[in-house]
């Protein structure tokens, strides 16, 4: 038993380094997508204190809209632009209809409202696009679908080109967001609203504009995530579960920290893959990915309630 848990997995890792690298790569790809979704959460939470449960369904909704528009015969790139338009309309609608009347309510009420949005969008999406599984229009968007073969340590490492594209695009998006938040007027306004809403309001920052803006950015992130994940697993409402994966990332990284979301996402992506392959499948019957991230985050929080990167100032105890 002791050998199975503490020694055998590491022996396996050393004996087949190419397989280990394959596992790490898979983990990295899902990790970067978790990080992206978590980033959407963090942006909205920082600027409005809303814990946006609808981020997951926004991913599904964006992907469905994209595929649905393409099925209607619209050229692929115009589909992307139109989908961005739809996400913008969605952001405005959410701000107008749901959030504006609820300004100043307790956090839990706003959280519930986002669950309401989630249910509504699930129903709405299924009525319009149907509930069946769809194929992401990967090739039509110009994303390469081949794979790159590497041979480290005399083994074989397969990198799917669409995964590489996803990683590169996600990295660019993260860098772009950081630049936007730190270097532009709008970005500063978002951070100001997060730091001190009343002071921000008093210097003339419009809360409505910022809310529409952050929900739109979350929509863009949702579209990118939807394309990347849809290319891997098809477009269906099952995609929504990856949004749950972003939650332990937030616990680990802290609800406010952008760096935390990125590093936490990568950590969880890689660790859950490692655990699943080397411990979960041989010892626990597999499919441990559904809960591993949560339990990991729970254990970390028991010893470090502020999370790995959370500011001490956040009162959580």
């Amino acid at each position: 038993m002791f050998y199975d848990i503490f020694i055998a997995p590491f022996v396996d890792m050393v004996e087949a380094p190419d397989f280990l690298m394959q596992v790490l790569w898979e983990g990295l790809v899902s990790g970067i997508l978790y990080a992206l979704i978590a980033l959407g959460f963090v942006l909205i939470f920082r600027s409005s204190r809303i814990f946006n449960f609808a981020q997951g369904i926004m991913v599904v909704f964006a992907a469905l809209t994209l595929v649905g528009l393409y099925a209607m015969g619209v050229p692929a790139w115009i589909c992307v632009i139109l989908t961005l338009g739809v996400m913008f309309v969605l952001a405005v609608a959410i701000e107008r209809i749901v959030l504006r009347p609820l300004v100043g309510q307790p956090d839990i009420i706003l959280f519930m409202a986002t669950i309401g949005i989630t249910l509504f969008l699930i129903g709405f999406g299924e009525v319009i696009f149907g509930g069946e599984n769809k194929v992401m229009i990967t090739e039509e968007l110009g994303i390469p679908t081949g794979s790159v073969l590497l041979e480290p340590f005399g083994g074989l490492l397969i990198l799917e080109q669409k995964d590489i594209t996803a990683v590169v695009v996600a990295a660019l998006l993260v860098v772009g967001l950081l630049v936007f938040l730190n270097r532009t007027r709008m970005g500063r306004a978002i951070r100001a609203l997060g730091d001190d809403p009343q002071a921000a309001l008093s210097v003339g920052i419009s809360i409505q504009t910022i809310w529409v803006l952050v929900w739109f950015i979350a929509g863009i992130i949702a579209l990118v995530t939807g394309i990347a994940w849809g290319a891997r697993a098809g477009v269906s409402f099952a995609l929504e579960v990856i949004a749950y994966k972003a939650l332990p990332v937030l616990m680990l990284g802290g609800l406010e920290s952008i760096a935390g979301a990125i590093i936490g996402g990568l950590m969880i992506g890689i660790l859950e893959k490692l655990f699943e392959i080397y411990w979960g499948q041989p010892l626990l019957g597999g499919n441990t990915e559904t809960w591993f991230a949560f339990v990991l985050a729970l254990i970390v929080l028991l010893f470090r309630p502020q999370g790995l990167f959370g500011e001490k100032i956040i009162e959580r105890v």
Partner: peptide
């Protein structure tokens, strides 16, 4: 599906 939409709308 309509049920989901209505429940979601009702919650809000």
């Amino acid at each position: 599906h309509l049920n989901l939409m209505i429940v979601g709308g009702l919650i809000i």
